[in-house]
Simulated scan of single mutants.
Amino acid sequence: MNVTQERVEKIRLFSERGREIEDEYSQQPISPTAIQDYNRKLDETLRELQDHVKRQEDALQKLRASRPIELPRPDMGSQERLSQVRRAKKAYDSLLRTDPELPAPDSPLPVLLALRETSRLLDESKASVSTIAEKLSADRQRLKVEEGNLRDAQMITGGLEERIERLRNERSEKEEKAPSQLANELIREQQSKNEELDRAAAELKDALDRFIDEHLASMLAAEDLGGPTVGDVLEVSDTILDAGYTLHGKPKKPKSTQTGRDPTQQRIDVLVQRQAGQGEDRNAPTNKREAAAAEMHTLLGRLLEAGSSYIDLPCDSAASRFLVKAKIAQFHPRDARRLRLIDFGRTIGD
């Protein structure tokens, strides 16, 4: 909706005049006589409008009764059309020469019409403000998105320019160096990468060993003994492993001889025995948790040495089942006693 500045100024002046009149009315309340006079003027104006409408309707009925209205027809000739246009022009000219019937100067009709027009403009302005507010909110959101895209584009452009400049510098440096010097630099760079990969692999191996010894071994031992599957129970003590599990997978009650000893004291005794060199093998597992850890270490070592080839499993164990569930290894399609690591560059079925 387009509203001219002139119309806005008129509305503003009208609002100011209305506010002034309201202030005057608040200071000098309207008397009952003034209200009766105003209502009387409204009634007179309404009667005048009704009489005017009635006169116009009577004139129209007389015009229709005296002469039928000739509407343009497709079969009318040019002369008939021209005469009809001339008659219409003559009628309009006669209307232009007559004075329009306007309300009296003291009639409340102009004020009512102005109020109705003002109310209409206010309603349209409120609707326009609501629409503009919604559009403004959407435009702000779009501006934020576009600003984010601009920042990303600037960062990408900066990174590409830095990369291009670095490649140009490397190219100029390579052109200035001899082939033997470039070859030595490539060899040193590759050796540095290999050493870094070896260090990272050693760190990963140590972390994996700690995870197996501290967390996974007890769960593997529990599954081998008929207990919960790996991951169902995260903490399984050595006492529960020594007691075993029932046919229903529930822990057995520890024996009285075992409950009488402190588990911490048992581990201290085992450590002292190892340090003293008692027994045939100082690294031999002393409990079921350590046996499960040793089995997992051995199995992973064999798989890593075999690479993509299959290895033969001496028996089904929780360690091999866990590796398959974790999608680290897979059984042979036709022989479940053979296992190999999954080639992560290919699908499982290859």
Rank of each mutant, 00 (worst) to 15 (best):
D37V: 09
D75I: 10
K250W: 05
P228M: 02
P105N: 04
D99T: 11
E161K: 15
S237D: 10
I342V: 11
R274V: 11
L234E: 05
T298L: 06
L182R: 15
E173Y: 02
P29N: 08
E134Q: 15
D209N: 07
R55P: 01
L208Y: 00
A243D: 05
R47Q: 13
G279W: 04
E162A: 15
N39T: 06
S130I: 05
E147R: 14
D242I: 04
A336Y: 10
D23A: 12
D58T: 08
D281T: 04
I156Y: 09
T131C: 03
Y25C: 08
L208V: 05
E44A: 08
K144C: 06
G349V: 11
E146C: 06
K325D: 12
E80I: 05
A153S: 09
D75F: 06
P333F: 07
A183C: 09
L303W: 01
D123L: 08
D335A: 11
E280W: 04
M155G: 05
C315A: 13
A138S: 14
L299Q: 00
R17F: 11
A336H: 12
L102S: 01
R210H: 04
R120Q: 12
I69H: 13
I69L: 15
M1R: 10
F344N: 08
L122G: 07
D123T: 12
E195T: 11
E162N: 14
R163E: 13
A319D: 01
V324F: 02
L241S: 01
F211I: 00
A329R: 01
V3D: 05
P179K: 03
I69G: 06
R12M: 13
T45M: 09
D238R: 06
N169F: 10
N149S: 06
D43V: 05
I187L: 13
H248A: 15
S107V: 02
Q56E: 11
V236D: 00
L299F: 03
Q36A: 14
T239A: 08
E9G: 08
E162K: 15
I69K: 10
I35P: 02
A318E: 00
S237M: 01
L225R: 02
L182E: 03
S128Q: 14
P105G: 03
S218C: 05
Y245S: 02
L220I: 00
Q27M: 07
Q56D: 12
L339N: 01
F14D: 08
